[in-house]
Design a protein around this nucleic acid. Structure first.
Lengths: 154, 154
DNA sequence: CCGAAACAGGACCATTCAGGTCTTTAATTA
DNA sequence: TAATTAAAGACCTGAATGGTCCTGTTTCGG
């Protein structure tokens, strides 16, 4: 169903959330914020660090912070970093697919791949940040779920 | 890596190839033409038939033929038929993802999903048909691979 | 100077799901 | 009536993703 890998999904969520914090944030803290299991957060962060999306600081009081603004990160670049090249099919670049040579659609896929890629490149992480109206709904849901623990500002 | 399922890939190839034949074509014949294993071809054709892309004729001298012109089939519709709804993530329609409620990107994904979908809807199967120059290259490759069996026109 | 905290970089397992095969049934035609 | 072919669905297998854990290495604080 043309779905994104969950890791890439997490990566985007984590980056957006990280952008909303100030100072360095530890991976356990990010796990708490996003709800993603800690080891997975750490794994994603490592990849993002290797690809220059976040800067890491080791040692006690270490953590992560964004390497650049969310507006300077495209959805495409994040997906490519986590999942590898964005391509719908195996036969890219005019090469033949592995079904033999009878496909005959050689090159036609490139049109699609390019279209998808440019679509995703045009969307920045900044534009993924929750909108106001949406945040309101979210906080309400959060309140519902936090009923027996904390009741902040209500 | 944001890849298409192989079944959807096959479906498109099969439809394009089917459009180049005249009269009804059996699935074994299509398997021979496309190089895709016969049972898989049959499986894909069944799905395509159920979704109205091809018309089936049972019994002896039966087979499949296109239900409408290739120009009237979008890549998006074929993918949707074989793989289900085209959506990058689980959280569509403003619903929250299953990581809990902390995603907070509610609705943002819809922008991406819609963009991808409309991109794919704008590409017809007709435009996937091999171009002349490309066919030439293909036939050359075919000749190379058929060296020890048949040498047609060379 | 030592210990705790936190990232780095792997290896590793387990689950899921897509891909593919097979069998049976029903329909059509010669 | 017999042969051919699609329809439908059960079932198996293998790859890959997702997730966990372990062992270093670095840095800060006491």
């Amino acid at each position: 169903m043309l779905k994104l890998s969950r890791l890439a999904d997490y990566a985007i969520v984590i980056l957006v959330k990280l952008g909303e914090q100030d100072g360095v944030v530890t991976s356990p803290a990010l796990a708490a914020i996003t709800g993603v299991p800690e080891p997975t957060v750490a794994k994603v962060l490592k990849v993002l660090s290797a690809h220059g999306f976040v800067l890491s600081q080791r040692g006690a009081k270490g953590g992560y912070r964004l390497a650049r603004s969310l507006a300077d990160m495209s959805v495409a670049s994040v997906i490519a970093a986590v999942d590898g090249q964005i391509a719908l099919t195996a036969c890219v670049g005019g090469r033949e697919c592995d079904t033999g040579l009878s496909c005959g659609l050689c090159g036609s896929w490139d049109v699609i791949n390019t279209a998808i890629r440019s679509t995703l490149e045009g969307i920045s992480l900044e534009s993924m940040r929750p909108k106001e109206a949406c945040s309101t709904v979210l906080s309400q849901i959060n309140k519902l779920n936090a009923t027996h623990t904390v009741r902040e500002g209500a």
